[in-house]
Every structure is written in structure tokens, then in C-alpha cells.
Nucleic acid binder design. Structure first.
Lengths: 135, 135
DNA sequence: CTGTATCCTTGTTGATACTG
DNA sequence: CAGTATCAACAAGGATACAG
């Protein structure tokens, strides 16, 4: 997977309905973006579209604060800043992988349940083999 | 662990700072509460203190909608409602266990990084072995 | 007992514009 | 390029009261 692919986190991506979240809304995306090496601020903005610079900065600061990433400023012009995963941050990759595996296996079941739930709406039947029905 | 222990989710519990969340704020607690068998509405309220009935109902409905739990109403007086994990809901227990294992292993590191970050505040030094320093 | 109904506070996200 | 500042919008969560 290309961490610079603009469609890496397309709205249709399962992560939209995933019941698991690492940190806030954007953290996991950023972690995955940095998997293959350091990235610059503007490089991260590409796949993580929708995140304004403000939100991106907020999230990056929080990750830095928690020791997940490092922030390195190079005294060049134009300025260059690189973000890189720490060993601690890399441990999150494994966790994300586990979550993805869960999604691959169980998300279809979840979505089916959700659809079935909407379908009955307020009509008869109960989820369980219930002895009594909820009017 | 006793799923009816009022202090099961004490504020000092690591889950307060955990960067991983299953669903919303209360879902994971509820899932764990139901691990050992069906529970009634008021039984769930005990360990999940802080959740008002409104929020608890919301969360339970969402979990039911997604096929994680079943809701069974018994036509008794006083009314009795039991919530129970589905097989799908039980798969979340494994996921939660993985997250807990991550926390046991890495949360101290995270907290240390956080403390170190606060300590420097805006003083010298950089997180990375940075060649240049951020003024 | 098991919820609903209202109202309100707060935190989070987003849009837009501007700076070193 | 890499942010910061400011304001607006929204959704989640909580307090309180009440109903079937």
C-alpha cells in the first residue's frame, strides 16, 4: 500500500464504520502513513485529506507528546519538517493490524446486523430467540 | 474480575488514558461487563458509573443495532430486560484483550513520554536527535 | 425497573484567513 | 513550506425530571 496514495483513506474505506479507534479521528491514519519512513507535513496531508492544517498539527503534536512520533526541523529554506515513528509508535502498527484483521473477518457481519436492524425498524420480531416480543 | 464491581472502571484505570477505543466511550466497558453472562439494565449501571440512563440506553441500542448484543424483554412485573453478548460481540472481547496487553506493555512508556514532554514545556532540546533546534 | 424527554455544557472538527 | 489565529458548526455527553 502506498502511504502517499490520496485515496488510501477513501470514505468507502472500512475504517469509516470501524468500531475501533486508535486515539482520535486522524491518529491511526497518520501512523499508517509513516509506516514506511519519515514524511513531511505536506506529504501527510495528501492521503489524510479532509484534515485541515490546524487539525493535522493538533494531532501530530498529540502524537509527539505521547512519544509516538518525533518531529525534526531542518534549518533550511524553504523550511522542512519531518515526522517519524518512534519504536513506541511502531507498536501501534501491530495493534492496527490486529484491528484490521478483525474488520476483515467481522465487519460484514456487523453491517449485515445493522441492515437487518434498520429493516425491521419498529416492526415485529426480536434479535434474540426471545420468549417475548418488545411491542 | 467481578463484572459487578463498582470500581471496575475506576478513574485511575488505565483505560482513561488508553489511546484505543472500541466504539464510543462506554461500549468496551459494557462488553466486558457482559463477558460472564447476561446482565440487566440496572446491573450494568453499577460498574459503569457515570453513565446516565440516557447514555446507557443509547450505547446499548447502538450495540444491539450492530449485532454485538441482544436485548430480551421478559413480560414480568416489575419489568426485566437482559442484555447478552452475541458471538460477534464476543469477538470484541479478544480485541479488547489485545488492547489491554498493549497497554500493560506500553502505557508506562507513553506516560513517561508525556511527562517528559510537559517537563520541557517550551525549554531547550528536541525530541529527536535533531541536528537543529526548534526555537 | 427500565427507560424517555429536555435542556445545556463541552469538546471536537471544520472553514477561512493570515504569518515566519 | 509549515504552520497559527479566529470563528463557526456540530455532536457527544451530562443533569435533571418524568413516564410506562
Amino acid at each position: 500500500m502506498d502511504p502517499l496514495d490520496p485515496d488510501m483513506f477513501h470514505p468507502a474505506c472500512p475504517s469509516s464504520v470501524m468500531p475501533i479507534r486508535i486515539g482520535d479521528k486522524w491518529s491511526a491514519m497518520i501512523i499508517v502513513c509513516l509506516e514506511q519512513g519519515p514524511r513531511r507535513f505536506s506529504e501527510i496531508r495528501v492521503p489524510v485529506h479532509g484534515a485541515t492544517p490546524k487539525v493535522l498539527t493538533q494531532t501530530l503534536r498529540a502524537l509527539e507528546r505521547d512519544g509516538m512520533i518525533t518531529r525534526t526541523v531542518y534549518a533550511e529554506v524553504p523550511p522542512r519538517v519531518e515526522y517519524e515513528l518512534t519504536p513506541l509508535g511502531r507498536t501501534l502498527l501491530e495493534l492496527i493490524a490486529v484491528c484490521r484483521a478483525w474488520a476483515d473477518e467481522h465487519l460484514p457481519t456487523l453491517l449485515a446486523a445493522r441492515e437487518a436492524y434498520e429493516d425491521r425498524g419498529s416492526t415485529p420480531g426480536s434479535t434474540a430467540p426471545a420468549p417475548f416480543v418488545d411491542p
